[in-house]
C-alpha cells in the first residue's frame, strides 16, 4: 500500500476512535450522577421517610410526606388542565394545516416551548398569586400546565398528522359526524403517540422547580389545600440542598432519589407505550 493511502486510512481510523471515545465519555457523568444519588439516597429511604414530615433543624430523621403528596397534587392538577387543552389544540392543528389561526397558534406553541421555566413562574405570579394575594398550589399547577401544554399539543399534532387520511374519510363516508370521527376513530388510532406525549410531558414537569419558586412556594407543613402554599419534591430538594444543615441534606438526598425514580419510571412507561400500542395499518 502506498504511504499516502496508509496515512489517509490511519486518519480515518483515528477519527473513528475519537468519535467512539467522546460518545462513550458522555455516559460517564450520567452514571456518576445516578450512582451518587442512589448511594446517598438509598440509605435514607424507608417507610418512616415516606410517611413523616420533615423535622426541624437539628433533629435527625423526619420524612418527606408533605412534598410527596404536594408534588402529586400539583402535577395532577397541572395535567388536568393541560391535557384537554393540549389534545384539542393538537387536533385543531393537525386538522387545519394551512389556516391563518393554525399558523399563529403553531408559532405561539413554539414560543411557549422555548420559554425559560423561570419566566413562566414570573407571569403566573402576576396572574394568580398577586390577585389571590397568596402563594398557592393552584398557581403552581397553572405554571406547570403552561410548561406541559406545548409538549402535549405538539406530540398530538405530530401523531395525528401521520395517520392516513383514508381513516378519516372512511368515517365521514359512513355519515359519522366530524366529532365522532375525530374522537372515536382518529384519536384512538393515534392513542399511543398521544399518550406517550402526555406521559413525557408529565415527566418533564414533575422535576420542574423554577416555575414553582414564586407560585407553589413550598411549605414545611402538610397541606392539601390547593389555595395555600404547598411543598413539592423539587422545591424541597432545592431548599434543603442549599441549606447549611446536614440533616436537611440527608432528606434532600432521599427526596432526590425518589424524584429520580419517579421521572425514570415515567420515561420507561413512555417507551413501553410507544412500542406496544402501535396500531397496524
Amino acid at each position: 500500500m502506498k504511504p499516502h493511502i496508509k496515512y489517509r486510512l490511519g486518519k480515518s481510523k483515528f477519527f473513528k476512535a475519537i468519535v467512539i471515545l467522546l460518545s462513550t465519555l458522555c455516559t460517564v457523568p450520567l452514571f456518576l450522577i445516578l450512582f451518587y444519588i442512589l448511594r446517598e439516597g438509598i440509605t435514607r429511604i424507608n417507610w418512616h421517610f415516606l410517611v413523616n414530615l420533615p423535622k426541624p433543624v437539628g433533629e435527625a430523621g423526619g420524612g418527606i410526606a408533605n412534598a410527596l403528596v404536594g408534588s402529586l397534587l400539583i402535577v395532577f392538577f397541572a395535567a388536568l388542565m393541560a391535557i384537554p387543552v393540549g389534545v384539542m389544540g393538537g387536533i385543531y392543528l393537525s386538522e387545519n394545516k394551512k389556516s391563518r389561526l393554525a399558523n399563529l397558534t403553531r408559532l405561539a406553541v413554539d414560543v411557549l416551548q422555548g420559554t425559560p421555566s423561570i419566566v413562566v413562574g414570573i407571569v403566573i405570579y402576576f396572574w394568580i398569586v398577586k390577585p389571590l394575594s397568596t402563594f398557592s398550589a393552584l398557581s403552581g399547577s397553572v405554571a406547570l400546565a403552561i410548561m406541559m401544554l406545548p409538549i402535549v399539543v405538539r406530540s398530538t399534532e405530530e401523531t395525528l398528522k401521520l395517520l392516513p387520511a383514508s381513516l378519516k374519510e372512511a368515517g365521514l363516508a359512513l355519515g359519522l359526524p366530524y366529532q365522532r370521527v375525530i374522537l372515536r376513530i382518529v384519536l384512538p388510532c393515534g392513542f399511543s403517540g398521544v399518550i406517550s406525549g402526555i406521559i413525557l410531558a408529565v415527566a418533564r414537569i414533575a422535576g420542574e422547580t423554577a416555575p414553582l419558586l414564586f407560585t407553589a412556594f413550598g411549605n414545611p407543613f402538610f397541606s392539601t389545600n390547593i389555595f395555600k402554599p404547598m411543598q413539592s419534591l423539587p422545591l424541597l430538594i432545592f431548599n434543603y440542598a442549599t441549606s447549611p444543615y446536614d440533616e436537611w441534606h440527608d432528606l434532600a438526598w432521599g427526596a432526590a432519589l425518589i424524584l429520580l425514580l419517579w421521572v425514570l419510571l415515567l420515561n420507561i412507561i413512555t417507551k413501553i407505550t410507544t412500542r406496544r400500542w402501535k396500531i397496524q395499518f
Partner: peptide, 19 residues
C-alpha cells in the same frame, strides 16, 4: 443514556454539582 440525560430534573444536576 442520552435521553436519560435530558430527563434528569435540573434540580438534581444542581444538587449533585453542589456536592
Amino acid at each position: 443514556s442520552i435521553e436519560l440525560i435530558a430527563a434528569v430534573p435540573s434540580v438534581i444536576y444542581g444538587f449533585w454539582g453542589l456536592f
